[in-house]
Each structure stands twice: as structure tokens, then as C-alpha cells.
Design a protein around this nucleic acid. Sequence first.
DNA 1: AGGGTACGTAACTGCAAGGGTACATATCGG
DNA 2: CCGATATGTACCCTTGCAGTTACGTACCCT
Lengths: 105, 105
Amino acid sequence: MDAVLQALADPSRRTVLEILRDHQASAGELAEALPIARPGVSRHLRVLREAGLVEVRSEGQRRIYSLRADALVEVDEWLEDYRALWQHRLDALHTEIARGKKARR
Amino acid sequence: MDAVLQALADPSRRTVLEILRDHQASAGELAEALPIARPGVSRHLRVLREAGLVEVRSEGQRRIYSLRADALVEVDEWLEDYRALWQHRLDALHTEIARGKKARR
DNA sequence: AGGGTACGTAACTGCAAGGGTACATATCGG
DNA sequence: CCGATATGTACCCTTGCAGTTACGTACCCT
């Protein structure tokens, strides 16, 4: 859990996840999509792997990374304890709207 | 969004949110609950405030912090694009359970 | 006004994270 | 076996962040 949120803090790593959400990709392909050089990407991938967010599979000389979305369940469960609160707040907002007050945002 | 996930990366800051989830608290009270000194807590609170996760209200000479849980909606929305994927995976797991395989966890 | 309390901020330190270059390793193709 | 490709790792450097102490500031009370 700690490792997951830690891993998600970096924008580059989130970009990797976003790509992998769409399709598997080799380390090189991921590196091309990022503004940093390949070694840096390798290290990001290592962090993601250790957090359980991605998994690797060797395919010839390439290493294919794929998403392990279920690691994000931890984040979802963490959010669970707060969800009721913001929903309560949204309800209050809806009430205000119902009263005719203007909704910003 | 970026600022929110960044703020959530630190365990101390998550502890602050956890406390505030239960009740409002002054900066000093929060500092007592954390293993770090007050100035450090002040800076954590600043980060949380700039991420929109908490809000402050002056009450006499004290500053009362309270949770703004709706800032976490951003995280929930970010998760949304992944939720379908891990639920797919969970469905597969449930299928296995239905087949009589043992569920770990 | 003046002392005490509750915070925030400034300045400094220590360390870990992130980026790059150079190098090692593994696999494919002939 | 050898070169080329694909990737990870080692090393170095720089920057940013967390923590501390010292100090400034705002507010309360008498």
C-alpha cells in the first residue's frame, strides 16, 4: 500500500500505467513515450514492479510489461474510509443547488 | 490531481488525514500525534492545504484543521479508468472460487 | 503594555529520488 | 562464434524534501 501510493506519486510512472492500461509494451516502447532516457525508464519500471503494479514477461530479447491493475485495489480500499465523507459533502452541495444557489467548479 | 497524489505519498500526511477524518484538530494536536516536531508538521499541513485536502480556520490563537475529503474525488476519478480492469480480474478470481479453488488473501 | 501560548517561516543539514553516461548481460540472426 | 538489438545495473551528480533549531508573528489574558 505504502509502496503503491509512493509509486503513483511520480507522473512518469503514472504515464506508464496509462499506456499499459491500453496495451502491453516493451521497455523500449515505454521509453520512447516518455521524456526521459531508457535507463531512467528501467528504474521507474522497477519501482512499479516492486509495488506490484506491473509484471514483466520475457519475450525473446525484449521484456514485455503489462498492467497488474488489481494492485490498485489497495488504493481503492484506502479511499473507502473517506468516500462516505465526500459523498456527504456532495449531497450538501446538491442541496444548495436545489435551493437555487449557484454551483461553482 | 498531481498535487493530491504527491501529498498522499507521505505516510505522515496520510496519518494527518486519518486523524482529521475522525475530528478536527489544531496544528499542535496533530503534531503531538506524529513522531516529528511541530515545524515539520506545519509544512506537511501546508502541503495538504495546497493540495486542497485540508482547510484551516483560525480560532483564537489556534489554527483548526479540518478535512476536505472531496479533494479525494480526483483520486477516485483517476482510479475509475482502472477499476474495470481489476474488477475483470476479480471476476476471474470469483470464477476460480466457484470452481472450488481456494481463495487466498 | 507585557508575558505567555500557538503557530508559521527561515536557514541549515542529511538523505533519498530521479536523471544521465557508461558498462554488463542476454538473446537473436547469420 | 560474432555483431546487433534490447534491456537492466553501476556510478555519479544534482535537486528536492523531511527534519531540526532559531526566530518572527498573531492572539489571548491580566
